[in-house]
Amino acid sequence: MTTRYARTPKPSGSTFEVLSWFYMRASGALLALMVVFHLIWMHYVIGLTNIDFDVIAGRWTGPGGIFWRSYDLTLLILASLHGMNGIRFVTDDYIHNRGWRAVVKALIALVLLLMVVFGGLVIFTFNG
């Protein structure tokens, strides 16, 4: 059993940060793949000039509907979470006032919530 030394400072051992760090890398790797696939599909398979509401609607309501809705939902959640978590971490680099940090982080949480909820709703309930 090791002795605790009086010098241990601020409360630490943030498991949240470990998981957050791991998530950023895992989701980052996945996103890299998913985004590339998405770009290839949009640019080459569909063709940029061909993209319009009907094309996307057709994708979601057609035979591959479950696949596309799942894919887009995954991309939405992974990306929003990755992006907003990143901004959360960066606010601690540049905003030192605790009050302002709380405000900014609350806003970030709100934006995240809105993106995921509304985006998810659209994907799930879209009916053509």
Binding site: T2, R4, K10, S12, G13, S14, E17, F89
Partner: peptide, 19 residues
């Protein structure tokens, strides 16, 4: 050394290695 656990805890702080 036997103090790794304590040091890793200190460094796992948001202002530790994650920065």
């Amino acid at each position: 050394d036997q103090g790794s656990a304590q040091r890793l805890e200190i460094l796992a702080d948001p202002d530790g290695v994650w920065r």
